[in-house]
């Protein structure tokens, strides 16, 4: 399948140049990092940009920066980089686990976390982790910088709050001590898009943060569920009540990948199993 659209390709070495190009082209320009979504869209003629800006020449964006309080993941950082980072495995285990569940190695070697949130498909695997971590998306245009809460980032299926002249520089993630899991529903063990996903974080004493993907128009935190669970020791009774709340916070659809009924059922199963796993991990950590 040939790409039918004609465009220019540029690979700037300076951030300023990239921002100028964006500012002069707006929607006509598309950012290329890993290309695992973009090139498919070009082949299917879903996008017809006039300019492709390859940001792999911007070496500052290819880094994972670690400080005591934050981890910042640059826009050029691939899922493989994430998986190979000891710091992320230790400090952001939910993101690590989500990254491992993305596609396959040949894709993860190219695809970036930032690209994942920019595609903003409802099934994006990295979203539940970034949501429970209360992450920030760092963007910049020619004149200013923004730090956008991940909770405000997704505005609809395949839609974000990013402006056409803005470039995402990276994602800033606050580091707090926790355990957790990302549970994903796929049609088999091999690579698949999430038909439902849930990220569960357990921290402090009986504090919980939970977020979903693929069971609503955008990935989201499950606040009612968190409010119910916070402060509670987990028992079978608590879990049974919590499972009822899940239904109120998700809006699964039926499509060729899965029925709404199964998505809904599996969210409860994954919640219960994921929660128990997280708590077991937390206890394991203490001993």
């Amino acid at each position: 399948m040939a790409i039918l659209n004609d465009f220019e390709y540029k690979k700037p070495k300076e951030l300023d140049v990239a921002l100028s190009l964006l500012s002069s082209h707006h929607e006509k320009a598309k950012i290329l990092a890993g290309g695992t979504d973009l090139v498919v869209y070009l082949k299917e003629d879903i996008l017809q940009p006039k300019l492709i800006i390859d940001i792999k020449g911007l070496s500052d964006l290819n880094k994972i920066e670690i400080s005591d309080d934050y981890i910042t993941i640059g826009a050029g950082v691939t899922f493989t980089d994430i998986i190979e980072s000891k710091n992320i495995k230790e400090k952001l285990p939910i993101l690590y686990q989500a990254s491992e569940s993305v596609a396959s190695i040949g894709i993860r070697n190219r695809a970036t976390v930032v690209g994942n949130i920019c595609s903003a498909v409802p099934s994006l695997d990295s979203a539940p982790a970034l949501l429970v971590y209360d992450s920030y998306v760092l963007t910049q245009n020619k004149s200013s910088k923004r730090s956008i809460s991940i909770h405000d980032w997704f505005t609809g299926p395949k839609k974000t709050t990013l402006k056409p002249d803005e470039l995402v520089l990276g994602i800033k993630i606050p580091v707090i001590k926790h355990t957790g899991v990302y549970e994903k529903l796929g049609r088999y063990k091999g690579e698949d898009l999430a038909q439902a996903g849930i990220g569960i974080m357990v921290y402090d004493t009986n504090k919980y943060r939970i977020a979903h993907c693929a069971v609503g128009p955008i990935p989201k935190r499950m606040k009612k569920l968190e409010d119910f669970l916070n402060g509670k020791e987990i028992s079978n009774e608590v879990v049974t009540k919590a499972k009822k709340i899940i239904t109120e916070e998700i809006f699964p659809i039926s499509d060729i990948r899965s029925s709404a009924e199964y998505r809904s059922h599996m969210m409860k199963v994954m919640f219960e199993r994921g929660l128990k796993k997280s708590i077991a991990r937390a206890k394991g950590g203490k001993s």
Partner: peptide, 21 residues
């Protein structure tokens, strides 16, 4: 994965890489 090649030592899908890259 039938189009896999090693790009700087890493396997990539050559169908999703622009030659200019």
């Amino acid at each position: 994965g039938a189009c896999a090649v090693l790009l700087n030592g890493r396997s990539v899908r050559s169908c999703l890489v622009l030659a200019m890259e």
